[in-house]
Amino acid sequence: MFSWLARITLACWRPVSRYARMNKDNNNSNNDELEEDSSSLSNSLLWCRDLEKHSYGDFSYAVVQANEIIEDYSQVETGNDATFVGVYDGHGGPDASRFISDHLFQNLLRLAQANGTISEDILRSAFSATEDGFLTLVRRTCGIKPLIAAIGSCCLVGVIWRGTLYIANLGDSRAVIGYLGRSNKIVAEQLTKDHNASIEEVRQELRSLHPDDSHIVVMKHGAWRIKGIIQVSRSIGDAYLKRPEFSLDPSFPRFHLSEPIRQPVLTAEPSLCTRELKPSDKFLIFASDGLWEHLTNQQAVEIVYNYPRAGIARRLIKTALNEAARKREMRYEDLKKVDKGIRRFFHDDITVVVVFIDHESLSTKMSVPELSVRGFVDTIGPSNFNIL
């Protein structure tokens, strides 16, 4: 069936370079296989920055599109004394993830500069301000665009400042650190919790918060879903599952609730993690769940550890796409030619940022470009990331 679908898609395939641009300014990899793949993917929904500098080392960045309209937004902000990474995996449309990309970093920067520091409280407040801002937008526009009340986004943020890593997360994007363990073997450690109803712990949490609602989580279409609709339990947006005034008309059956909510079903309260970076900590992987559907944490860190830095985010995406094709009994070469929209039957939008930690840079004041890099839209410019 899938090979038939691929042949039909190939027959009507059209160039998509106007939607995705491959940036080759920094492609220093001398790996012929990856370079050939880069060339063949340049017109097939992939965007990347193979290697850039940040305050404490290098980073590699790649995004591949699957949806008709990409719902993954992301950014890296580099300053002289700090590095910011944000991955925003939207659902229901791009409005929430795009809004987060435009506002969350600015909210964080405003709060950090006002307090002269980065902390878990600062991150929590930046998430809250972003949620409030998006719900205000929903309130203003739902009269002409009611479905905006059903648009939301996962949100994963990491900040490195003064040798400390701060992470805040909503949803099922994931941050994983690779560190050297015994016998100098690379070990994966997951730094975030997946807020997804497929996990028993999350279902138990939801049931304890909603003891009078026997339908708070139900199995539907082969997966555990909150109210039979959504899998992630924390997000920015999804206003119709948080505020009674945003309940959607029954004419939208996909988002129809059998009765008005009496309390928020989802929350925008992030889970937080602080880690003093140690000499054994070598790199971080920030990625939307599209990567983790196809790779384990350990598989991902071993790929990063065993291959050159340049193009490593792209290599992780290529490996995930190979696995997605294998699961559908397709060849990878055929999957690369499947167009956006139809591509979503095979894999999700995928964003990957790999941040290398060079510990000599943690103790040495290095001058690096202050860059703001936005994933996929290929927006690159100066950053104002200065906390003090």
Rank of each mutant, 00 (worst) to 15 (best):
G341Q: 03
L104H: 12
S361E: 04
S17Q: 15
R174T: 08
I285A: 00
V232S: 01
M22L: 10
C155A: 11
T9W: 10
L109A: 09
S208A: 15
I303K: 08
G86A: 14
C12W: 14
A112S: 13
L34S: 09
T379E: 13
V87C: 03
R314M: 11
L135S: 02
L147T: 07
Q298Y: 07
S383W: 06
G143A: 08
S247L: 10
S214C: 10
S128F: 07
S101K: 10
V353R: 02
T164F: 02
G290Y: 07
K318M: 06
I216D: 00
S372V: 01
R139F: 06
L5D: 01
P369L: 09
S39Q: 09
I342D: 14
L191V: 01
E35W: 11
V218S: 11
S29G: 09
N67T: 04
F345S: 12
T141D: 13
S367W: 09
E302I: 01
N80C: 07
V76F: 08
S125C: 09
I261L: 12
D358N: 08
S42R: 14
W161M: 07
I160A: 02
R139P: 02
Q231K: 06
I380H: 01
D58H: 10
P279H: 11
Y88T: 11
N27E: 11
I8T: 06
A239W: 00
A11E: 13
I357A: 11
I167M: 01
I8N: 07
S361N: 05
S29Y: 10
S125F: 08
D95P: 08
R207Q: 15
